[in-house]
Design a protein around this nucleic acid. Structure first.
Lengths: 336, 336
DNA sequence: TTGTATGCGTTATCAT
DNA sequence: ATGATAACGCATACAA
């Protein structure tokens, strides 16, 4: 490993001067700077991020928390798209990313401890159980954080517009003449509560009744549970004419249940998903769904976090809402 | 931040003793060890991975290279499953993972330089262009590496069994009576070459002719290109009775093309995918496909890499082949 | 058994 | 404009 000491010897200057020259300090002569940089390049010098971090108290490394409650977190398209864009934006700004987790080998630590252990300059909290004390500890610590789809007090967050998304879906379905709309929702997280409230409110505004049996619980990203919920809806005396699923993937469970009952989409039953993952648009018929701006959310999260890291004095907590858009698809038939 | 110095003051012993006690050295009295550890816990001490790494020359941090040629790498289910399992196994063994990329902020470096910059103890190379000089430099450097789905000389690698997978698929289809089998393949990577060779060899063994026009190029994970290839196959005078797609996702492109032509699967056309992602088993009819052992591949990759890191003297390069399994599904009809 | 001294590679302060 | 020196937090060879 070639260090600044090697360069200093090769150039016949002190290590301090080398360091300054490499970092473009103004108090070193242009000639020396040039000479130092050239030999650095010639020797194949690379700064050592570890030593730098130790000295400066800044690691240029941000943690990403992806504790998937439902199992398989990263492998859900929505989250992997967010991860991908967080990564891209962080790297663009000169930061590496490291995963934060509980229990590293024999070391047993919580998220906060893990982040400190790795000297993360900040953490993006995505896909976590926000009731978990370990998550709360991290989010209320002195470590800069940005959360996705959840807001902690006095902290920055990126929110997908669940209220608007659900409202748009309901209004779209309503405009197609539907009055019996069922909603299969995911676990009762804050996201779910927003969608549920928006569903009920929009229906109320449109004068659509929402029988209790039209609202059924399921599990996000779990086609099986949505399939069961679909079966329950089909067993009702008064079937809905349209079913809203918790997410696009879950619709697949409903889809097979519908087929098993000889119902074809959208002729016999209209449906809509949520997320707008690529899969939804490659299905036939194309799924009606609300596409969340995952890429933009990840990008904004990284941007906001790093802004907070680099300008802690002028920083104020911010809630950024990222709007998505309705993908009309062809799974909602006009029964007007 | 509480350091060993704080503990040493609180305990009235030297920092060296604290360090030893914390690391369970045998040359420190049980009483002192106990006292040191208790005050460490009381003070909320956390080891500083950065300082430790600088001193020991070991970061307990492994890099993961996910340069997606086709764009969107992580977000493909196959790769995100691998990432997930690499992460899980590495963490189990006490290692964190960091993404390795080109160009970090203004710093312009290649993969090797990035890995050195972050003092990675090793790198898992997944989903990369193995012809890229930057990838080759990393894989032939002194940094321990494990590659997935590609072998460099004298390096460890984890291989999915593409030869066997393709052979099983072809034999299955053949057993169902098919003699006109088309193969839409992905970009010509080493993986593709293996599948292609296995396809041709197995067909030859079974006495099935493979007309040139039955082998069509497309792009992995790109439904559109597979859709076009499907269209070309349907335009042939002598249509195949079965089409093998490059991967499960790509089949969706073929699926809609088939539907557009009024062909139903498997009645009018048999099909099979590759990968065995969850989506494939939730489609109706369930897709016939070959499920790659992504989880096991990721786990083995992490295990092998860390073994090499921790026992460099007794280590020898290893190629581990992870077998998958045929998922029969219902998209290949029996025309025997 | 415990403590002293040193260095990992870097940056920052303060002389020169 | 340049250099000597110290410090970041930790682990270790060696002395006591």
């Amino acid at each position: 490993m070639v260090t600044i000491t090697d360069i200093s010897k090769a150039c016949g200057v002190s290590r301090a001067t080398v360091s300054k020259a490499l970092n473009g300090a103004s108090d070193v002569s242009p000639e020396t700077t040039k000479r130092v940089r050239e030999t650095a390049a010639a020797l194949g010098y690379l700064p050592n991020a570890t030593a730098r971090a130790l000295k400066m108290g800044r690691s240029y490394n941000v943690g990403v928390l992806f504790s998937d409650t439902t199992g398989g977190g990263i492998s859900h398209e929505y989250f992997s798209r967010i991860l991908e864009s967080v990564k891209a934006e962080a790297e663009r700004l000169g930061y590496d990313i490291t995963f934060i987790s509980k229990d590293l080998g024999r070391l047993s630590m919580d998220y906060y401890e893990h982040a400190k252990y790795r000297s993360c300059d900040g953490v993006v909290i995505a896909s976590a159980d926000f009731q978990d004390p370990a998550v709360i500890r991290l989010a209320t610590s002195e470590i800069p954080t940005v959360t996705l789809d959840y807001s902690f007090d006095s902290r920055s967050s990126i929110l997908s517009d669940n209220v608007r998304g659900m409202e748009e879906l309901v209004r779209f379905v309503h405009a197609k003449g539907h009055r019996k709309i069922a909603f299969i929702h995911g676990e009762l997280t804050s996201v779910t509560q927003k969608r549920l409230a928006s569903f009920r409110r929009t229906c109320a505004e449109l004068g659509i009744p929402v029988p209790a049996e039209y609202v059924r619980p399921a599990v996000y990203h779990d086609p099986r549970s949505s399939g069961l919920a679909t079966r329950a809806l089909l067993a009702l005396e008064e079937r809905p004419t349209c079913i809203l699923f918790p997410d696009d993937l879950s619709y697949l469970g409903g889809m097979s249940e519908l087929e098993r009952n000889g119902l074809s989409v959208p002729k016999d039953m209209s449906v809509a998903g949520y997320d707008g993952i690529p899969l939804s648009q490659v299905l036939r018929p194309r799924l009606t769904t609300y596409q969340q701006g995952a890429e933009q959310m990840g990008k904004e999260a990284a941007r906001l976090l790093i802004e907070q890291i680099e300008k802690p004095d002028t920083w104020i907590p911010q809630q950024i809402t990222v709007e998505g858009r309705l993908l009309e698809g062809s799974t909602v038939i006009d029964i007007g």
